[in-house]
Design a protein around this nucleic acid. Structure first.
Lengths: 163, 163
DNA sequence: ATTTAATCTATAACACGTTATATAACACCC
DNA sequence: GGGTGTTATATAACGTGTTATAGATTAAAT
């Protein structure tokens, strides 16, 4: 039996570990989506949800809403365009900005997902995480906020102020 | 101000969120490594640490130890070979297996990292996460174990046993 | 002993994130 | 009003994970 070093090393490999768990979770989520016969990738959902919640958004706003960089948003929106779930047109007042909106097909997908798929996924993840001592979502929020406030490289934990 | 949908959607986007935080953490960790003048990627460390802890390991064992797939391990070991931190030779009893061991240079890097870099990173991450209510590392372990025991797709949270 | 199946590593093709940079449109200033 | 800087999106190149599959070696079976 080989030791799981990432787990053993604890805080040292926290980044690798979070990513690894996230990838696993997302792969499992994808399986739920596939079993439901939806033709969409798990990573595309947040984009649709963002537009559903806030109305048409630009590429830049979508990137911000989903928390990735602009080129990543451009690519994913390109896929959703191909799939016919969203539509894109230049903003009337500023030709640089492209407003991305849901098509009827996209809205249908969102509506259906909200009823059938999303609750199921959220319930399954809650079932997985919900009973843990600390409310994990708040802890993640605290970590994100903490990183934004003071990046890791500036945290010396009061140990060595490197002379 | 654009809403962070991944955060807003909570458990539904837990996978995306963990991955996102992990990527951020690892990028910050990389910065610490770079500032120390080490010529290595954060993601390569677990491989060196695994060999340091357990002695020479095969590609498959390394993949298992680090928690990624075998092709990923093959690639990373290829990089570490190029960098001269590890050595690889066929196992004497089984020509299919390749035993990966630390070179002197690799051992030096590990020894130095153990003294200087790893404690600093671990302390910084602990500073970031340590004060949270629940011990986050144990919660992550519980999530990993939970996923391994019952995959997400089989967790219906007792709601609908799909007739 | 030769064929067949299983195991281990390597390679190819892809997914999806990143950084760096090019291009187009707007905003400002002289 | 034409140059200059800024902003928004697109594209290129790369990093690192994945799945699928090929190749080589070992183990098993007839």
């Amino acid at each position: 039996m080989i030791e799981d070093v990432v787990r053993t090393l604890g805080f040292l490999c926290m980044g690798s570990r979070l990513r690894r768990i996230g990838e696993r979770l997302q792969a499992d989520t994808q399986q739920v989506i596939d079993e439901a016969g939806l033709g969409i990738q798990a990573g595309q959902y947040p984009f649709l949800a963002a537009i559903d919640r806030a109305g048409p958004l630009t590429i830049g706003e979508l990137a911000q809403a989903v928390g990735i960089t602009q080129p990543g948003a451009t690519r994913t929106i390109g896929q959703l365009l191909e799939l016919g779930y969203v539509d894109m047109q230049p903003a009337p007042d500023d030709q640089r900005r492209r407003l991305v909106s849901l098509t009827d097909k996209g809205q249908d997908l969102v509506d259906h997902s909200k009823k059938v798929i999303w609750p199921r996924i959220a319930a399954a993840v809650a079932d997985l995480c919900g009973d843990l001592d600390g409310p994990i979502l708040e802890q993640l929020a605290a970590i994100e906020d903490g990183l934004a406030a003071v990046p890791l490289a500036r945290r010396n934990a009061g140990k060595e102020e490197n002379s």
